[in-house]
Computed example of a mutant assay.
Amino acid sequence: MIRIIIETIAAFYAAYGFGLVFNIKGDTLKIAGIGGAIGWFVYKVLITYTSIADPAALFLAGVSFSVYCEMCARIFLLPTTILSACALIVLVPGFGVYKTIYEFIMEKYITAGNLFTETLAAAGALALSVIFVTSIFRNVNIRRIISSKFEKNDVK
């Protein structure tokens, strides 16, 4: 478990670093870093302690950081894309792409095809999770729900 915590701290700083590359300023960097840490923590816990497949773990990790980013975007009045991009970069299957290209160059086409399929599934799961959460948040007007609850309490 200590290894997961160390990796989560590293994921925070990785997302924080990409925030610097994207020219994010102030407390928004910390918010983006926490998003990356949340995604990595959920992914590592699911991979380590359950028998869930890698794309499914990436999907659930993507849902977790996407919900966090959408909530922070509404609370702090920030664009969701900058938070999501920094948090997402930690989980991107870059090593899978590297291994796929390497095996293709080494003319191991069957292995390269298998790796390509796995990498495509991982990237697709991440993209699907972000789209899933974003579409839910755009279709549910949270401010309207909150204000309607307060209006009902004021009437009594």
Results as ranks from 00 to 15, higher is better:
Phe22Leu: 15
Gly94Asn: 00
Ala15Trp: 05
Gly19Ile: 02
Ala85Ser: 15
Ile38Glu: 06
Phe18Thr: 00
Arg74Lys: 14
Tyr16Ser: 10
Asp27Gln: 09
Phe65Met: 10
Thr80Pro: 08
Ser129Ile: 00
Arg138Asn: 14
Glu70Phe: 06
Gly62Asn: 05
Leu115Ile: 11
Val42Ser: 08
Ile52Asn: 01
Asp54Ile: 15
Thr8Pro: 07
Ala61Arg: 11
Phe59His: 05
Lys99His: 14
Leu128Gly: 14
Ser135Ile: 06
Leu46Glu: 14
Cys86Asn: 14
Val63Thr: 00
Gly35Tyr: 09
Glu70Tyr: 05
Val63Ile: 10
Pro55Ala: 02
Ile131Asn: 09
Arg143Ala: 14
Gly39Phe: 03
Pro55Ser: 00
Ala57Ser: 12
Tyr43Thr: 03
Ser64Trp: 04
Phe12Lys: 01
Ile110Lys: 12
Glu7Val: 02
Trp40Asn: 14
Ile52Cys: 07
Ala123Val: 00
Gly36Ala: 02
Gly62Ile: 11
Gly35Thr: 02
Ile105Pro: 02
Ile9Thr: 07
Val140Asp: 00
Val130Leu: 12
Glu7Met: 11
Leu128Cys: 15
Phe137Gln: 08
Ala125Trp: 13
Phe95Leu: 14
Gly62His: 08
Tyr49Asn: 10
Gly35Pro: 07
Asn114Tyr: 05
Leu88Glu: 00
Ala122Val: 05
Arg144Ala: 14
Asn139Gln: 08
Val45Met: 13
Tyr102Phe: 10
Tyr68Ala: 01
Thr50Gly: 03
Ile38Thr: 09
Thr80Val: 11
Ile101Lys: 05
Leu20Lys: 12
Ser84Thr: 15
Gly35Asn: 02
Ser84Phe: 06
Tyr109Ile: 04
Ile105His: 06
Phe116Ser: 13
Ala125Asp: 10
Arg144Gln: 13
Ile110Pro: 12
Thr80Leu: 05
Gly33Asn: 03
Ile4Cys: 08
Lys30Asp: 07
Gly35His: 03
Glu118Trp: 03
Ile4Arg: 01
Ser129Gly: 06
Leu77Trp: 07
Ile31Thr: 11
Val140Trp: 00
Ile31Gln: 11
Ile34Ser: 04
Ser84Val: 15
Ala121Asp: 09
Gly113Leu: 07
Ser66Phe: 01
Phe95Cys: 12
Phe41Leu: 09
Gly19Leu: 01
Cys72Ala: 14
Lys25Ala: 11
Arg143His: 13
Val45Thr: 11
Ile6Thr: 06
Ala32Lys: 00
Phe137Cys: 09
Ile131His: 11
Thr8Phe: 01
Leu60Val: 07
Thr100Cys: 02
Gly36Gln: 04
Leu77Ala: 15
Thr80Gln: 04
Ala32Glu: 02
Asp27His: 12
Cys69Asn: 15
Val130Glu: 02
Leu58Arg: 05
Phe41His: 07
Glu107Met: 03
Asn141Gly: 00
Ala56Trp: 06
Val140Gln: 00
Leu20Tyr: 13
Ile75Asp: 01
Ala87Trp: 00
Asn141Phe: 09
Ala112Gln: 07
Ser84Ala: 14
Ile34Phe: 06
Phe18Asp: 02
Ile38Leu: 04
Leu46Ser: 11
Leu58Pro: 00
Phe95Arg: 13
Val45Ala: 04
